[in-house]
Design a binder for these strands. Sequence first.
DNA 1: GTCTTGATTTAGCCAAGGCTAAATTGATAC
DNA 2: GTATCAATTTAGCCTTGGCTAAATCAAGAC
Lengths: 134, 134
Amino acid sequence: MSVKPLKFVKLRHAHHQETAQDYVEMIQDLLKEEGEARVTEIAKRFGVSAVTTHKIILRLQKEKLVDSKPYRALFLTPKGKKMAIQSKKRHNVVYRFLKKLGVPEKTAQIDAEGIEHHVSPKTLRIFQKFMEQG
Amino acid sequence: MSVKPLKFVKLRHAHHQETAQDYVEMIQDLLKEEGEARVTEIAKRFGVSAVTTHKIILRLQKEKLVDSKPYRALFLTPKGKKMAIQSKKRHNVVYRFLKKLGVPEKTAQIDAEGIEHHVSPKTLRIFQKFMEQG
DNA sequence: GTCTTGATTTAGCCAAGGCTAAATTGATAC
DNA sequence: GTATCAATTTAGCCTTGGCTAAATCAAGAC
Ligand SMILES: [Mn+2]
Ligand SMILES: [Mn+2]
Ligand SMILES: [Mn+2]
Ligand SMILES: [Mn+2]
């Protein structure tokens, strides 16, 4: 049998996207819920220090996903907004799919937070169809 | 609504386990398929350099999952064997579950490689039941 | 206008996983 | 037995995402 590193290469790529996806989703949530997105609140919700959040925000700014001036609140760029919308949608499909299957609410929340980043477009469509019918 | 960092804390914990799980699984495969597990072959299959694999093996030895002498082949400790068996079983349930749902073989392989590490015992049992019946 | 304080940022540390280049070694060929 | 060569290991670099301690700043209180 031949060797297939492809799936591991894709796995590493997915990992590299996870933080960005969770952060833009969180910023979008805060903008909606609280009116503004601040480092301290993001850090509290992720359960990390404000310093960790700050450093990740710097990276997301370099990647043109987040926009802000020093000591000020955070905003999503158009690119960041787009990623947030897509990520949230996928997250929600995975979450509802798990619940439809019979996974308890709390467990579905926890598992969806990890699974979402590894569901390909093909699999996502199948999850969606399952919910509409099943 | 209250703030719930729990799912993110668990996500980070899952990530910390991923590499170990994939490596012990791979070593087990090689012991079975090839008779021995070598750094070079592991690196080839993961699609990383032999140096990267070597460093990860050093960590797994410190964690008492892997056993070997310098320049020699690798073995699993009892602890490593146990993890390999459990990981392989979970991986397989996730993979077969996706195929049963209608996900194409190749996609199921790729997605399962990432999803497996985020499926809790409760969700795994539900996946299993779905296959037996559905 | 100044003071105070909480939020933000900077400095500096760590571990995990990536890499290339170079040194070492085990095993095979001769 | 020695020479060779492929595999392994070491050295040294990078990025991401963790942390604490200390510095800086914005905004509200007075
Ligand atoms: Mn999400
Ligand atoms: Mn997530
Ligand atoms: Mn696996
Ligand atoms: Mn895996």
